[in-house]
């Protein structure tokens, strides 16, 4: 089961990753400036000497600047990219320094491995940050495996009026005899968002696609695909949603439809779908009395019985 996606949906996870890199920079920088000899030796350089110590200290200053830039700066993507350049410099210096002063091979290996790991993290963060500035179309995707036949899963979804039972943002879906559907979803601050939709694809036990027709508050389209899971493990369900508010920004669209973490919200919706199909209802706990809900996961009540 995987959740994949692009666009603004990643912003929270990315923020955490980026903040982590910032803090890491500050901590490492502080250590390098305060005790360059110790850090150099831990990194595998046996006798750092005055040049080695000075280099390490300079690198410490660089880490501090990066850390401050990433945590406080507005152009985070640029700061993360400068970190990548720094990472490459680190690796080159460690190798050169080691060749000069006879480093212990084990420590050198450990250091290089750690640096490679940090570089990979930096590259990932930079790539995510640059994907966030896009053209305003939002996309959410999620997948889940349900221990039921393809036919059963398809039929439950095909009755669109079932969707609000497991899709948290939907209030009602009504299908009229012509096949056109009328959707109502909760918008920000108690508002209601409405649109009409038509089905664009309907292949039994395989795929359902729909899209909003002209006049929608939020232009949107979606596809759900059903396929057999390997080894007789039921049905894999993959959902892909796209939406765009009328002339609005990415942020507004996200807030309007799927909250700030659209991929997670969609994945939580799919988990509810799985629960409904497998056990007949949505599972509740003291901390999450209304079941799977991204918002509730962020604002848990204590794990106590519900009064």
């Amino acid at each position: 089961m995987t959740t994949t996606g692009t666009g603004s949906s990643r912003s929270n996870g990315t923020a955490g990753l980026v903040a982590g890199l910032g803090v890491f920079s500050l901590a490492l920088g502080a250590a390098e400036v305060a005790s360059p000899g110790v850090v150099a030796r831990l990194a595998g350089v046996r006798d750092p000497g005055p040049t080695g110590r000075a280099t390490t200290m300079l690198y410490g200053v660089r880490e501090l600047v990066h850390g401050a830039g990433i945590l406080g700066g507005r152009r985070k993507a640029t700061w993360v990219r400068t970190r990548i350049a720094g990472d490459v410099l680190d690796i080159a210096t460690v190798v050169a320094g080691a060749a000069r002063s006879g480093a212990s091979p084990t420590r050198l290996g450990l250091t290089l491995a750690a640096l490679a790991g940090v570089t990979a993290t930096d590259v990932a963060a930079a790539r995510r940050l640059s994907q966030e500035s896009d053209d305003g179309e939002c996309r959410a995707t999620a997948a889940i495996t349900v221990n039921r036949s393809r036919g059963e899963a398809y039929r439950h979804w095909r009755n669109l009026e079932h969707l609000p039972e497991f899709m948290a943002h939907l209030r009602t879906v009504r299908v009229d005899p012509s096949g056109r559907s009328h959707w109502e979803a909760s918008g920000p601050a108690g508002t209601t968002v409405r649109w009409d939709a038509e089905m664009t694809t309907d292949r039994e036990d395989e795929e359902i696609s729909w899209r909003s027709v002209a006049g929608a508050d939020v232009e949107n389209a979606g596809t759900v695909r059903f396929r057999d899971a390997a080894g007789g493990r039921g049905t894999e369900i993959v959902v892909d949603l796209r939406y765009r508010p009328p002339g609005g920004s990415t942020g507004a669209a996200v807030a309007t439809l799927l909250g700030e973490e659209p991929n997670q919200q969609l994945r939580d919706d799919l988990r509810r779908f799985k629960q409904v199909l497998e056990i007949g209802e949505v599972v509740r706990s003291g901390g999450s009395p209304s079941g799977q809900s991204t918002r509730q996961q962020l604002a848990q009540r204590p794990a106590q019985p519900v009064a």
Binding site: Q264, E278, V283, R284, S285, Q292, S293, T294, Q296, Q300
Partner: peptide, 11 residues
């Protein structure tokens, strides 16, 4: 796979 309403946090 069904008992954790907060599976999103664990993931």
């Amino acid at each position: 796979e069904n008992s954790n309403p907060n599976a999103g946090i664990a993931e």
